[in-house]
Simulated assay, not measured.
Amino acid sequence: MSLTLFHSPGACSMAPHVCLEEAGAEFEAVRVPIREGAHLRPEYLAINPRGRVPALRIGERVLTENPAVLTWIAFNHPGAELLPATDSVEFGQALEWMAWLSSSLHVAYAQLWRTARFVGEGAPPAVLAPLQAQGRTLIERHHAEIDARLENRAFAVGDRFGVVDANLLPFYRWGGLIGLDMRAACPAWTAHAERMLDRPAVRRVLEREEVSLWP
């Protein structure tokens, strides 16, 4: 069964990119650079009509949305142990993390960077500015929660690397991109990010995507 990951450098698609590498999966990585508008071109919309990354083509079928893609990767590469045992509380915690990152932190970044999604194209600055300010406030609040949850922990869930650790990487990077001093504001998360850099799979993905965790 062939696997193709459609990703944009530094985007949330970094998480399944890392997990596929961690799992030792054979896959093709296809760039869909958002900055160039590639996610809105007809050839990509034919793959994912929502115009978002990631998209994982599995044979002739396509799976989208990070929690679904990450869960599928983990279940279909059990030897990598990217999710805890399904009868454990830790399994539920991993799903909780992924759902919250997608529904809250990612939405806050969208509110800051993609404000038109919420108010429509062409909205005046007087409409955009309060929403962007609220987005940044939410980002900082969510970052503080992540930092607290990672304090004195080597990994986000359980005692080994998993999908949540990969999922946290792009968000850590985004904090620096919006000018936050992540080392000062989020020391536990920074220590976690630095530990992730010790993993060959993470380094391979950062090199392939040509991005860094720090601006």
Rank of each mutant, 00 (worst) to 15 (best):
I47K: 01
G135H: 14
L213P: 15
A148C: 01
V18R: 01
R149N: 12
L112I: 03
N66R: 11
Q132N: 13
D147Y: 04
E140N: 06
Y109Q: 04
P67A: 01
A166Y: 00
G51N: 14
L131Q: 12
W72I: 04
L180E: 07
D159R: 15
L169P: 02
V157A: 04
G92Q: 13
E26A: 11
Q134D: 14
R183H: 13
M182E: 06
N167R: 00
A55P: 07
A29T: 04
E96W: 13
P84S: 07
P130A: 04
H7S: 14
A129M: 14
S104G: 09
F75A: 15
W189N: 01
V53S: 05
R173Q: 10
F171A: 00
F161I: 06
P130S: 07
R61M: 08
E210L: 12
D87T: 12
G179S: 00
R160H: 06
V164R: 06
E28K: 11
H142G: 02
T4P: 02
A154T: 14
G176D: 10
P170A: 02
I146E: 03
R203G: 00
A144M: 09
W100C: 04
F75N: 11
R199E: 01
A188E: 00
H39F: 02
A201I: 03
A133W: 09
Q93L: 15
P42E: 07
R153M: 03
A201Y: 04
G92F: 15
L3N: 05
P84N: 12
A15Q: 02
I73M: 07
A108M: 04
S212H: 13
R136C: 09
A38R: 13
A29F: 02
R114L: 06
A55R: 03
T115G: 04
D181P: 00
R160F: 03
E140I: 10
E22Y: 05
E209W: 08
